[in-house]
Computed example of a mutant assay.
Amino acid sequence: MAEATKRYAIVTGANKGVGFGVVKQLASKGVMTVLTARDEKRGLEAVEKLKECGLSDLVVFHQLDVTNPASIASLADFVKTQFGKLDILVNNAAVIGSILNPEAFRAVPSKKLEEVDWNEVSTPNYELSEECLKTNYYGTKRVTQALLPLLELSDSPRLVIVSSSIVKLLYFPDGWPKEVLSDAESLTEERIEILAKKYPSFCINCVCPGYVKTDINCNSGILTIEEGAESVVRLGLLPNGSPTGQFFIRKELTPF
């Protein structure tokens, strides 16, 4: 069962990139953190890297495929059995909904995410767009629903959803059906505002960590993993009474 003063966190999609950075920073601050990944081998390798940093007592791995209800249920059972509660949930697992052209991406002169012409650096793919919705929206929704009862047992529950300031353009370039574009544009706002109103004792926020150098943008970003993770961890560790139901770009509060 949970110790009275111990805090427990889960980070989805955390074997690399911003998710990995978030796990490292949370553990470094004394938070017992569950690093999750769809691929067990990659997840365990990520945990080994953190052990080399002296964080072996504060990081544990659990396999999680956010598109698989059985996998989600297994994670919830693990946390309930091992910790008895959950204090911080960081929904970071995501995939991109188009085929990227690495050379075109790296040739973009602008280093501002919102100024990238995604139709020049990516090719629409319907199968990938379906996977994107299944992972980024429905997967996030199911993971959150499964873990809400454990978050309710916390004295300071925190839910952080990692998103993008250009979710529509990043995942669904021009040419997709209007209903798909509409869904992509509204998902972040819908899930944050509804949850924040339903759970007023929680601190629930969405954050774009910025143009971070990761695989999802062919490593063309300008921020380091550590810099991107810092914005996410800040929201996970906000004190009680902090803003909820908001969208941040890094540390800046931004309208949806």
Rank of each mutant, 00 (worst) to 15 (best):
D87A: 01
S201C: 08
V233N: 07
S163E: 13
K85S: 11
T123Q: 11
I88Y: 06
D183A: 13
A229D: 01
C53P: 01
T254R: 05
Q246C: 13
K168E: 15
L128M: 15
G43A: 12
C203D: 01
H62V: 02
I194F: 07
E152V: 07
S74H: 06
Q25Y: 00
I249W: 07
Y126D: 11
V121S: 07
R191C: 04
R234S: 01
L128G: 06
V233Q: 03
L235W: 07
M1S: 10
S110C: 10
F172N: 13
K134I: 04
L151R: 11
S71I: 13
A70S: 14
E152R: 13
T36V: 02
S110H: 03
T5E: 10
V162I: 14
S201Y: 00
S242L: 10
C203L: 15
V66S: 05
L150T: 09
C208K: 08
E252F: 03
I166S: 07
R158F: 00
T123V: 12
L147H: 10
N119M: 08
A9E: 12
V90G: 13
L235P: 06
G175T: 12
L169V: 01
G43P: 09
L147A: 08
E185Y: 06
T33M: 07
A146I: 04
N91G: 03
N240A: 10
Q25S: 02
E52M: 01
K111D: 14
L235F: 04
K141H: 14
E189M: 13
A146W: 08
V160Y: 05
A73T: 12
E103D: 14
L113W: 13
E193S: 09
D39P: 08
L89R: 10
S220K: 09
V207E: 00
V116K: 01
G228M: 00
R191K: 15
L128Q: 15
E130M: 14
G17E: 06
L50R: 03
K178S: 15
N125F: 10
E185P: 02
A37S: 15
E114A: 05
R250L: 03
L195M: 08
Y8S: 01
V233E: 01
S182V: 01
K198Q: 13
K41P: 00
Q246F: 00
S156R: 10
S74C: 06
L253Y: 02
P157A: 06
K41T: 08
E45C: 03
N101R: 13
F20P: 01
I88R: 09
E115L: 11
E230G: 00
Y126T: 14
V95N: 05
T224R: 02
K198N: 14
V60I: 15
I194N: 04
W118A: 01
G84L: 06
R234L: 09
G241H: 09
P157T: 08
S163N: 08
V232T: 10
K112Y: 05
Q145V: 05
G228V: 07
R158G: 09
D174V: 12
E127M: 03
A94C: 09
V60Q: 09
C53D: 13
L133K: 02
S110T: 15
I249T: 08
A27K: 03
E127I: 11
R38H: 13
K134W: 05
E48D: 14
I96W: 05
A9N: 08
T33F: 08
S56G: 10
L195T: 14
F78G: 02
E185W: 09
